[in-house]
Design a binder for these strands. Sequence first.
DNA 1: CGCGGCTAGTTGAGGTTGTCAACCATCGAC
DNA 2: GTCGATGGTTGACAACCTCAACTAGCCGCG
Lengths: 142, 142
Amino acid sequence: MTSSVKHPAAVQEAWSLVGKLFWQMRPRMLGVAGELGLTPPQMFALRALDPEQPVPMRELAAQLHCDSSNVTGLVDGLEAHGLVERRSAEHDRRVRMLVVTERGAQVRRRIDEVVEAVPPALASLSAEDQRTLRDILRRALG
Amino acid sequence: MTSSVKHPAAVQEAWSLVGKLFWQMRPRMLGVAGELGLTPPQMFALRALDPEQPVPMRELAAQLHCDSSNVTGLVDGLEAHGLVERRSAEHDRRVRMLVVTERGAQVRRRIDEVVEAVPPALASLSAEDQRTLRDILRRALG
DNA sequence: CGCGGCTAGTTGAGGTTGTCAACCATCGAC
DNA sequence: GTCGATGGTTGACAACCTCAACTAGCCGCG
């Protein structure tokens, strides 16, 4: 009876609840994109970059699971907003390194503020539940 | 020190891990959409419908957090695929009820199969962790 | 009854996303 | 140097999404 094979219901329900949790965050994400004058894909692209060090465009494409040609347009938009800069790499003149500007870093922090904001449902948990939740997820993704 | 106010780190990390978990599912979702000949928005729209009973378009728009005019096109696509039917409501001739066809129900089940498939990271947890996870999430969303 | 306000859904314009194929410049190996 | 592979851009095309304008139908009020 305690076999994990015979009782997939628990984890399945858990995953379904996680989905519900995520869906509740959607309006908030769309909201901050509009507030910052960005489209959601542009927002995700900026968020996928590293403000600390330059990232090649092809790596951004990989992280977004999309075509390189798509990234070209996305970066065009971000560059027009003055949030990122294209810089040539010295070791390989084909690759374009993406550098987050000062203003880009600011905007990115604002995005993180909202995206990483803990949903009320989780925030309402007891401190012990919160810690347990973190520990289990750490074990899952570790 | 044990106050939940002074230690938001645990739940924040948990939420961040949840985000990572979700991001890992993205390719799988895009994959099933392509397999079924649907675009991702069409897939989500079909999933938001109820195969058991008709749903007004207005409610679908609300559930998708998008404009009504957008839903028109989405439903056009689903109807062209024979997955949904527009039916007039008897009590109010303005509203269009969306009925999931037999084939629509089949496709929907296939979508659920993939969307609700538990990610490997969660499946690898011990049976006890899985149950605990479900219980905590139930408390959060209950 | 008829009028005015409201609601459900559609249409059209306009900008953005996303993929594919073709292309250019560059690198690396031979 | 030449050849194949790679990073990025461009153009074509389909789809998404929002907004404003519109039609059709509901409802209340005089």
